[in-house]
Amino acid sequence: MSKYMLIMRGTDESMAKMMQTPFEEMLETVGRFNEELIRAGVLVAAEGLDDPAQGVVVDFSGETPVVTDGPYGETKELFGGYYVLDVGSKEEAVEWAKRLPAIPGSKVEVRRVPGIDEFPQDNQWIIKERQWRERTGQL
């Protein structure tokens, strides 16, 4: 089994469409999908994000970081939330992504999440992270 992240990306237009959807309807649709993931035993985590206008951007393109308040202005794609699934293959992750109740015009990016065992086990930082994961029940 491997972990895959499904990254939900929307445009300004698809986000506006989503905001027009009644909240109860959205909860029902997403709730049914989440229940499918839970019944299949593949859901690890899932979160949606707040309105982009409430966020900030920390830009590291200069000598010092510059913080800009939202809204972001014109955007092509906004990161709106994510799912982490533990599935048998990338193809299975893609099949779940295709079933995700997405707003027309949005996209879902599918990316594998490498496990800690894939990193050099003699590295001091990997050793410390492994210890932290063991202490917190993540391993």
Rank of each mutant, 00 (worst) to 15 (best):
Y82I: 04
W132L: 07
P120Q: 00
E109Q: 06
Q121A: 00
V87D: 01
A53Y: 06
M19V: 03
Q20L: 10
V110D: 04
M5C: 06
D12Y: 04
Q20P: 04
V108C: 07
Y4E: 02
R9I: 07
L37M: 12
D50K: 12
V44M: 07
D59C: 08
T64K: 15
D86V: 05
A40W: 07
D69R: 13
E118Y: 05
A46Q: 12
E24W: 07
W96L: 06
T68F: 07
T68S: 14
K76T: 15
E95T: 10
M1S: 14
E13N: 13
I103N: 07
D59P: 04
R111A: 03
A97Q: 06
P65F: 04
L27M: 15
R135H: 04
E35K: 15
L85C: 10
T11A: 11
P22Q: 05
V84F: 01
D51E: 09
S61T: 14
N34L: 14
I103S: 09
M15V: 13
E36V: 13
A46I: 09
F119T: 04
R39N: 15
M8H: 12
N123W: 01
T29L: 13
E28C: 07
A16W: 08
E28A: 15
T21D: 02
G81A: 02
G137R: 08
Q20M: 11
E13M: 11
F33I: 06
D122K: 00
Q54F: 05
V42L: 10
P114D: 10
E25A: 15
I103L: 11
S61K: 11
T11G: 13
V108M: 11
E35W: 08
F79V: 10
R133M: 08
P71Q: 06
E36Y: 11
R32S: 14
A16H: 13
V56L: 10
E92K: 04
K76Y: 13
G62D: 10
E92Y: 05
V66C: 02
V108I: 15
R9A: 07
L43Y: 03
D51P: 01
V87P: 02
L100W: 11
G10Q: 15
P65H: 02
G70Y: 01
Q124G: 00
V42K: 05
V84M: 06
G70L: 00
P71H: 06
E13K: 13
E129W: 02
P101S: 11
D86K: 11
V67P: 03
E129H: 03
P101R: 06
F23M: 14
K98I: 09
V30I: 10
V84P: 01
V108E: 04
G73D: 03
E91H: 05
E92H: 05
R133E: 02
G10D: 14
E24R: 09
M19Y: 03
E91L: 02
R9Q: 12
